[in-house]
Structure formats: C-alpha cells, structure tokens
Write a protein that binds this DNA or RNA. Structure first.
Length: 156
DNA sequence: GCCAACGTTGGC
DNA sequence: GCCAACGTTGGC
C-alpha cells in the first residue's frame, strides 16, 4: 500500500524542471536538516510512494509528482565541510541525517497555487496549509492526493 | 522587505 | 528541565 508525501523546494534552488532534466530524472533529496522531516524520510518513505512536488516562496504551488526509488540512506552532504548543509555532528559511523532518492513522474497539467488549495473542500486539514507550517517533508492523505490530482486535470 | 511561526541552542 | 535569545522558513 503506497503512502503519499509532499516535499518542498524553492524553485530557485531546485525545481521540478531541474528534476525532470536530471540525466535519469532522479535526485537524492539531500540537505534536509529538520528532525521531523528526517524521520519521515528515514523511517516511513517506501519504494514506490508518490510524492507531490511543491515550489515554495516564488509562486507557492504544487507543480508535479515524483516517486521514491530508493529508501533512506545517510545524507553524505552532512559530512562535507564544503557543503552548505555540513553538520560536524553527523559522522560516517553515526550519521544524523538521511535522505531518499526520488524520480520525476510528471508535471501536473497546471500548477495549483496555495491560494487555490486553501479553498478546496477536503484539503482543510493538509499539513501544507496549516498556518506557520514549515515542514519540508510531510505526509499527505490518499484522499488529499486524489483531490489534488483531479483538480489539476480540471480546467487544465 | 516585513514579520509571524517555528525549531534549536545554551545558560541557568 | 525551563525558557529567552536567536536563526530560519516562507507567505504576503
């Protein structure tokens, strides 16, 4: 039974187009430095899980879908002093941060803005729409996922 | 650019 | 273990 997720990224940093244009359309979801988000990736994201791709900050909207193609493994960027997400407390023997690999599935027929999503019955309880929500990896209900996919097909 | 909300850090 | 200070996220 597949689970459903949502990941956030600032498009200026890494966008759905960046993912689509990767050589194999796969990327490691590295750089997450929040324990709750890490726990979802480390403990719960499974092969084949579907993931909504959300652009934050610039035109905040859900723009596409990807899927988990590799389950959690240590985020090696935490070990690299040159990396922006370097964390000296994470070691090879005792890694603190984890990531999964995701693969591009599709862009939605049209992007769904935050503003629009807030008005959709059935999405009221989405973590994404909670005031002050800052989680960058979060679970999504199957119902919510279906509503979003159907909505994107309407008025495409 | 502003600022509310949130997570983390560190003194005590 | 509490909590003030601080840094970051992210909508607007």
């Amino acid at each position: 039974m597949a689970n459903y997720w949502l990941v956030k990224s600032e498009p200026g940093c890494y966008s759905i187009d960046t993912l689509e244009n990767e050589p194999d359309q796969i990327t490691s979801w590295d750089g997450v430095r929040n324990y709750q988000a890490r726990n979802f990736m480390r403990d719960e994201m499974k092969l084949g899980d579907k993931v909504l791709f959300y652009h934050s900050v610039t035109n905040p909207s859900i723009v596409g879908i990807c899927e988990v193609v590799r389950e959690s493994y240590p985020d090696h960027t935490a070990w690299n002093p040159e990396d922006d997400h370097f964390d000296p407390k994470s070691t090879v023997d005792n890694p603190r941060w984890f990531m999964v690999d995701v693969k591009f599935v599709e862009k939605l027929p049209r992007a769904l803005s935050l503003k629009e999503l807030r008005q959709i019955p059935g999405l009221e309880r989405m973590e994404l729409l909670r005031k002050g929500s800052r989680l960058s990896v979060m679970p999504v209900d199957k119902n919510e996922f279906d509503i979003i996919c159907n909505l994107a097909k309407e008025q495409a």
